[in-house]
Write a protein that binds this DNA or RNA. Structure first.
Lengths: 115, 115
DNA sequence: CAACTAGTTGATTGATTAGTCATCTATTGG
DNA sequence: CCAATAGATGACTAATCAATCAACTAGTTG
């Protein structure tokens, strides 16, 4: 097993592909994006995140765990509270890129009907 | 239903979140990343992609369809062949960002054991 | 039109995953 | 030590999705 893509001349290990995909996948869920967006304003406790997003507490906790696993978010415990914050600043750029691209494609799509 | 996040002061519609997530999700699968990577060298037919990636033909076709739906890849039919190409150039930047971030975090992680 | 080639799609299976409830752990304050 | 609070987690359900085979469509060539 443990195959590699060699045919393209560029050795791109399955393992590395998995890691990149894992990062994208973490951002590929509306619920997690909602949490990330809430955290863009700064570090917040789970309770605050739950209140702001309207998510079920257990669900929020799971998704936050997922984001930590993906290296996107960091966790800090203080007393009874647990605070999460953006750990990987590139998510700002990633989201910007996607948002701009969506805007761009939307513009082009609507332009089709305006000559 | 049709709720919006208003508590954060920034109106971010569920619908928009879904669109962004959809874009990320398309890149959140190793198989699709493999296809995208293969297409980064330029437009290719399904057959060539199948050969280069080692994917099952039907499976490749499905994932390519998925990438088209996500606005990442474009499709062009010519005679008996169907050619796919990168449609949204931001995938280059997206992948670069994630790769750099992974490298960075890997560096920091290994640094923990080197003082 | 028949045979062939390239690619798509229906149907199915198995795996993964989001959401939820109830329970559990950890921390704080009385 | 007890009650209360914040958050995580086990167990479960339902939904989603990747992979595959077989059947199909569309275009080409004899």
């Amino acid at each position: 097993m443990k195959t590699q893509i060699k045919r393209s001349g560029l050795a791109l290990s399955e393992n590395y592909l998995d890691k990149v995909a894992h990062r994208f996948k973490a951002l590929g869920e509306p619920t997690r994006l909602k949490l990330v967006h809430a955290l863009m304003a700064g570090e917040k406790s789970v309770g605050v995140l739950v209140e702001e997003t309207g998510l079920n507490q257990a669900n929020a906790s799971r998704h936050l765990h997922n984001l930590v696993q993906a290296g996107i978010v960091a966790r800090r415990k203080d007393g009874n509270f647990v605070y999460y914050r953006i750990e990987d600043a590139t998510v700002f750029d990633l989201c910007d890129l996607v948002c701009n691209s969506l805007r761009e494609q939307h513009k082009q799509a609507s332009g089709l009907f305006q000559g």
